[in-house]
Design a protein around this nucleic acid. Structure first.
Lengths: 158, 158
DNA sequence: CTTCCTGCAAAGAGTTTGCATTTGT
DNA sequence: ACAAATGCAAACTCTTTGCAGGAAG
């Protein structure tokens, strides 16, 4: 748990008038346990929370409703803890908003395949611009849309 | 109509086995008439099509259903004619995909205010990466999420 | 004259909201 | 105690889809 402890989360929440709850801790811990590059939809997260629950001591406790999942995701995006990704599957995905925002996405408009890549100079350029405009930057996303090599053979696209 | 004539659209469609229809021409013409930087949701476009219709000679003709609007938008994104923007309002926006993809967005996560900025080096970096991965790039979007100057005063965010 | 496109209406997915209850501070 | 968060269920918005009639190549 190198990213944010329960106490640090609590402080961050309390300083804004929000409260620390087991649900919020659980949600964050799921994201922290995720491999770099993985991202979850609201449904994915909901499922992960239930599965995580099975092995625990208190099985029927700590159940989180889908509403709370959505509310928590929104809160954590606004606090800068998570980043919201709109790729191509018709619903949003979320992942930890790691300090260095240098990982971006390429999406195939035809088969929805997603590729990640690292690129730090983009974030620098973007943040500079945003700060000049008076924004406090929480996330910086470069998304490329195109047709992947496999799909390029299909003449109807591109 | 400096961007794409009806004939050019027809060729582009036919070469892929699609057909040129009055609806598709109309949709594209709406986007061409749009000021640089403006973007429309599916509903916006549907409304614009109806309003545009009022002044015309054949009022009851050329009505386009919302289904067709959605189908046309999707088609034109996949063909690289339009770009799909996912900003913050909970629904997608569309604009002409102009040859130089050097205009990007900053969104306030609190009030949804959107700011545009020009930046060409980002597109260069991104396209280089994508091409190396074998992608045929159709769009390149840099989106920054943050809290705008006005909202920063609200202690609950940021 | 065949294939593709459209409009309609209905369905679908993902997300949000109101309200009573529970919980953190 | 008081305000904030949760769970449930219902509502809501945006978007997609099946099908019959109509239009383009």
């Amino acid at each position: 748990m190198t990213f944010l402890s329960d106490e640090a989360l609590k402080d961050k929440l309390n300083s804004r008038g929000y409260r620390s709850t087991p649900q919020r801790q659980k949600v964050l811990s799921i994201f922290i346990a995720l491999a770099q590059g993985e991202h979850l939809s609201a449904e994915d997260l909901h499922r992960a929370l239930r599965e995580d629950d099975v092995g625990d001591a208190a099985p029927t406790e700590n159940r989180i409703s889908l509403s709370t999942v959505y509310r928590t995701l929104h809160l954590m995006v606004c606090m800068g803890l998570l980043r919201e990704l709109e790729l191509a599957e018709g619903h949003k995905h979320y992942e930890l908003n790691r300090p260095l925002r240098d990982h971006h996405h390429i999406v195939c408009l035809h088969c929805n395949q997603t590729l990640e890549f690292e690129e730090s100079s983009v974030a620098e350029i973007g943040e500079k611009t945003a700060k000049e405009a008076g924004y406090h930057v929480l996330d910086c996303q470069l998304i490329l849309y195109g047709i992947c090599a496999n799909c390029t053979e299909d003449k109807k696209v591109g």
